[in-house]
Design a binder for these strands. Structure first.
Lengths: 113, 113
DNA sequence: TATCCATTTCATATCATTTTGAAATAGATC
DNA sequence: GATCTATTTCAAAATGATATGAAATGGATA
């Protein structure tokens, strides 16, 4: 038996299984959202967001502050960029990264906890 | 060269590398925070949170709605529980899961996007 | 054009998460 | 106590994410 009898009534009141399923956003929206959370789910990436909160910084300063290898930083910057949390603006020889509006909001959620 | 000369001045104004490092929470806090985001970083787990938003549900109804195997659901419920986003209350033969306050706030952040 | 330097890309190794199906647990009912 | 059923646990396989160092890119300057 899938659903025990005593629960069937409660379930019916809220529209049954189909009623519950209607709560879900479509798969694409869920992927986007969970992808954003995935980007936030790493201490090194949270450090990068925290660094960018006061204002934009170039890659070299971020690298020096975090004390990690170039390629490793580049990987994490790319994850954040793909998730729409930061944006990079080439400026002469170097690239300046800053928080996007979404990135800023994610960070304030972070600080609200 | 670590930091290009033209950037040194800007960097000095914001307290240098050490000034930037002082922005970081300690490692443990970052682990806790990224751990919570990790729990949110999966479409199936987001579906579970969305299901529980209107009110508590038993495991069997959640399983039937999601259409996944028992053990798989149990795994995801456990991830959410460990992250403090949901709580399970045994009630007779079955177990009733509900959002915690933190889980509710995470969900509203989710919907605010 | 040759060179320099900041950043990214790539291949590969390592590590972590997720899925799957079978077996265990534990509470309720007979 | 025996059995039934909802849920969890476990081990293994499959999949995905991260770290690392060497090589490539591409803009700036000489």
């Amino acid at each position: 038996m899938a659903i025990p009898d005593p629960l069937e009534d409660d379930l019916a009141k809220i529209g049954g299984i189909e009623g519950l399923r209607s709560l879900f956003p479509d798969d694409e929206a869920l992927e986007t959202l969970s992808g954003r959370f995935k980007a936030l789910a790493d201490p090194m990436r949270l450090r990068i967001l925290i660094l960018l909160a006061p204002g934009p910084l170039c890659v070299c300063v971020i690298r020096e502050t975090l004390g990690i290898a170039d390629s490793r930083l580049s990987y994490h910057l790319n994850v954040l960029k793909k998730a729409g949390l930061i944006a990079g603006e080439p400026q002469g020889t170097w690239i300046i990264y800053s928080l996007t509006p979404v990135g800023g909001r994610a960070l304030s959620f972070l600080e609200g906890e």
